[in-house]
Design a protein around this nucleic acid. Structure first.
Lengths: 220, 220
DNA sequence: ATTTATTTTTAGATTAATCTAATATTATTT
DNA sequence: AAATAATATTAGATTAATCTAAAAATAAAT
């Protein structure tokens, strides 16, 4: 099976990420939005990916990733996340600076390189945003993650991931003192606007908006 | 000035590498051969690179790299060689395995990444094949290198580079016990076929062919 | 259950990078 | 110096990836 182009890999990742439980639940427009491109380009690419059997595509209905496609997508995701670990752990980048660079590095084709990189990094299981790193077979364990917004009062948690990974949001988190691994306790919830008060590491009292509460994920 | 495409960067590197002292001394066919492509494709690309003022192109006469083009080419070469150091020093690749992967990595666009990588590697001045690594400004010092073939009898040297970097040749060197940093002494030269006898590290007596002697570079 | 609105696909163009085949230029050899 | 050979360029096609505008299909609303 021929190598995928960068563009094909990116579309495949988008389909994978937009998939939920449902069958054919990924729409053309959602892919176009995610990838900042036009619906017409998406239709075209879905036809091509379908020919290569990377997705199952039903015109006007939606698309789902195939088994073959899922394996390919997970390898790209594996590479992306391993490179992110490298950038943060070894090259001292901040977690809000690594996404763009990893978007480029994820397309480098060399299984041996990724194996060696994985060895070098000590086989990390999670990336700097707390997302799990699939192994060579695409297997990974998801930590059960809940948005802070859904934690009940006095509930404890550890920040393990963020839903929104855009740079502005991550910088805001840094500024207010929320980081990966921080211990959280919900001390107050404001019904009408979804904001809440939390205690970080048992000492810093913080007010966070609904937007922040919905995008910070914790395990409990 | 817009970013160069991967293809443009590769052509630019080829023009740079094929340049000698002369003006417009790089020919279409030599580029086509170096890049394993057709002369027609080269003509086309030279026209485009010329429009971007990366090369000075005289139809039917030849091409030379521009100042702007040289800077761009040296940055790509810098990245290539830094990644090679990373692969060998950190990921434990052999020097004959890194070229292909570095060919991909050299196109990653992020000045900060390269600065950090350079820091991480301790600002190496030479890559695993002994080639100098240009600094951020494209400056580098060339070690004075001489092919073993040109060393006179009883002349000492240290292997610092190879002219031919193809994998088969490097593997051959590994097999016969010639490596970067090896100490050499020419003990005998055979006039009629250009072969010679050398002593590696003062203990291993080796017979090497003219081809090998011409492609192994030493300082003395 | 039609009409209207939304979503999706197709048709037709465009750009980058490549190719083959034909043409043009330069170099070499009688 | 004309003929031949070698090199290089252009013309015309092709493929991947994109776009805009038009057409088709589905969903929503009256």
């Amino acid at each position: 099976m021929k190598k995928l182009s960068f563009a094909e890999e990116n579309y495949l990742k988008a389909v994978y990420h937009l998939s939920n439980a449902g069958e054919f639940d990924v729409t053309t427009n959602s892919i176009a939005e995610e990838m900042d491109t036009k619906a017409a380009s998406v239709s075209d690419m879905l036809r091509r990916l379908s020919e290569k059997e990377m997705v199952v595509y039903r015109k006007y209905q939606g698309v789902k990733i195939s088994e073959k496609g899922k394996i390919a997508a997970l390898q790209v995701i594996r590479k992306h996340r391993l490179w992110e670990v490298f950038l943060v752990e070894k090259l001292k980048f901040n977690w809000d600076q690594v996404h763009e660079i990893a978007e480029q590095l994820e397309h480098i084709k060399s299984p041996l390189l990724i194996q060696r990189l994985d060895d070098f990094l000590g086989h990390p299981k999670f990336d700097p945003h707390g997302d799990p790193i699939p192994d060579e077979n695409g297997l990974f364990k998801e930590k059960p993650q809940v948005p802070l917004a859904e934690v009940e009062i006095s509930g404890d948690g550890i920040v393990v991931a963020v839903k929104d990974t855009n740079s502005m949001f991550l910088q805001h988190l840094d500024r207010i003192g929320i980081y990966l691994g921080a211990k959280t306790k919900v001390t107050e919830k404001v019904e009408f606007d979804g904001s809440m008060e939390i205690l970080v590491d048992g000492k810093n009292k913080l007010f966070i908006s609904k937007e922040v509460a919905e995008n910070v994920l914790v395990t409990h």
